[in-house]
């Protein structure tokens, strides 16, 4: 009979894993610094201290706000559009079967090649960034939602009919909660990709945002700023993904 390890041990082993990964990350970073030098990357400690002073400037927060606003718009549009299209296509089996490979194919297009077109269509402002974010984020959300609806346990729908639920009740009280775990997974994937889209959008042809700061740091030979902004973006992405992963796991455990 094998005894269950105590909970604190399981927790501390997870914490240890995280620590090891963080240490590896810092070691690789330091190694890159030793290899490439000050002109390409800033050392971990120096970056931290630069980042600490950077977040005290209002200039930084102006750019961060620009990115967050564009990201928030993109994410909301990606989620709403993705969920609505995913639900609609999932419920129409034939349309879904036709649309799914098309979306998969669309998704493999290197989207950055579309960016010049997006700029011409939407101009240099926030809307181009939002459009580019949506292009990245919406398709995985559509695909996850579509598959969640297609793979819903049919007996749940039979049960809805046997309980004489209206169509509206079926959608809101059976279908929606049944697809929710998969949908959260889709949102989690869409979240990272939307952010990617927005940052890439800011790197080209934009005067605002963290993406702009990164590229601007390079052209101004301000390597510490570039490295520090990258660090801040990475920390934000890991934290947000961790939060979504936690929700995701909770949803899947209940299911």
């Amino acid at each position: 009979m094998t005894a269950q390890p105590p909970a604190w041990l399981a927790f501390s082993s997870r914490a240890l894993d995280a620590l090891v990964i963080a240490a590896l990350f810092v070691a690789v970073w330091q190694g890159l610094y030793e290899y490439a030098g000050d002109s390409a990357i800033t050392a971990p400690l120096a970056t931290l201290s630069y980042a600490a002073s950077l977040v005290k400037t209002s200039n930084f927060w102006g750019h961060a706000q620009a990115t967050l606003v564009a990201f928030a718009y993109s994410l909301v549009i990606s989620i709403v559009l993705g969920v609505v299209l995913g639900l609609a296509l999932g419920l129409q089996r034939f349309a879904g079967d036709v649309a799914e490979p098309i979306f998969v194919a669309l998704y493999t297009i290197p989207k950055v090649t579309l960016y010049p077109l997006i700029l011409l269509i939407f101009g240099l402002g926030v809307s181009a960034k939002v459009a580019f974010g949506v292009i990245h984020g919406v398709i995985p959300i559509i695909l996850f939602t579509l598959n969640a609806v297609k793979n819903i346990n049919p007996v749940l729908l039979r049960t809805s009919r046997a309980m004489r639920l209206t169509q509206w009740q079926t959608v809101t009280t059976v279908l929606a909660p049944a697809v929710m775990p998969e949908l959260i997974t889709g949102v989690r994937v869409g979240f990272s990709l939307t952010m990617l889209g927005v940052l890439i959008g800011e790197m080209f042809a934009s005067q605002r945002g963290l993406g702009f700061l990164i590229v601007n740091g390079i052209s101004m030979h301000n390597v510490p700023m570039t490295t520090a902004v990258i660090l801040i973006v990475v920390v934000f992405a890991i934290a947000a993904n961790g939060l979504l992963l936690w929700i995701d796991k909770r949803m899947h455990r209940a299911a």
Binding site: N153, V155, T159, A162, A178
Partner: peptide
């Protein structure tokens, strides 16, 4: 009419 099916039809989120 009430129906109980062969498959598990409990709602996992409730």
């Amino acid at each position: 009419i009430g129906a109980v099916f062969q498959e598990d039809a409990s709602f996992p989120w409730l």
